[in-house]
Simulated scan of single mutants.
Amino acid sequence: MSTDDTLRTLIARIETLPASDSNEFVIAASRVLHELRKLDVTTSTANELDGPAPVLALSAIRRTYTALLDRVAQSPHATLGQRLAAVRHHAELTAFEAAAACGVAFEVIVGVEAGLPVPEDAAAVLQGLVDQLDRATAAA
């Protein structure tokens, strides 16, 4: 299946997701986000990035990912990692920069955004970063 076909399939799945205030939405959307990340990696590492078409496809994948991540982050059932990923994207910060900003290891940021458990002390610091970035991006 081509990149464009795969993206169209994922967009169709997004259009049929449950209501965003349901826990089922977060679970189903998380699966689509995972597929979008895989498609991004596959597309960006392909040797076929010559010319505008593959670059435009990559841009469409990333816009779709960001829009869905924003929806997930607004859900009352969003995880800390999903909220962190969304505000980090809006603030245009890398995982390295977010880790440095709150004094945690890079692996903690990557882990929490991947849905792995995070130690309580790190969770509190990360929630503080989410709150600060959320306020900063809302004011901008």
Score class of each variant (00 low, 15 high):
110 V>S: 09
18 P>Q: 01
54 P>W: 03
120 E>C: 08
80 L>M: 03
118 V>M: 05
132 Q>P: 01
8 R>P: 03
28 A>P: 13
118 V>P: 04
93 L>D: 00
117 P>E: 04
2 S>D: 14
107 E>D: 14
133 L>S: 03
137 T>V: 15
66 T>L: 07
103 G>F: 01
53 A>Y: 09
85 A>S: 14
38 K>Q: 13
53 A>P: 14
135 R>M: 12
71 R>K: 10
103 G>Y: 03
69 L>A: 03
66 T>I: 11
78 A>E: 06
38 K>I: 15
79 T>S: 10
58 L>F: 01
89 H>Y: 06
9 T>R: 14
20 S>I: 08
14 I>W: 03
55 V>E: 02
11 I>L: 09
129 L>F: 00
12 A>C: 02
41 V>K: 09
88 R>V: 08
67 A>H: 12
29 A>N: 06
130 V>K: 02
118 V>Q: 04
120 E>R: 12
93 L>I: 00
31 R>H: 06
26 V>L: 05
109 I>K: 00
23 N>T: 08
55 V>Q: 12
14 I>E: 09
135 R>A: 08
9 T>C: 07
99 A>T: 01
33 L>K: 11
65 Y>V: 02
33 L>E: 05
56 L>I: 13
125 V>C: 04
69 L>E: 09
73 A>M: 09
73 A>V: 14
23 N>F: 06
55 V>I: 14
74 Q>V: 06
92 E>A: 09
100 A>W: 01
52 P>R: 03
75 S>F: 07
49 L>W: 01
15 E>Y: 05
90 H>W: 07
100 A>C: 01
90 H>G: 11
65 Y>A: 02
101 A>I: 10
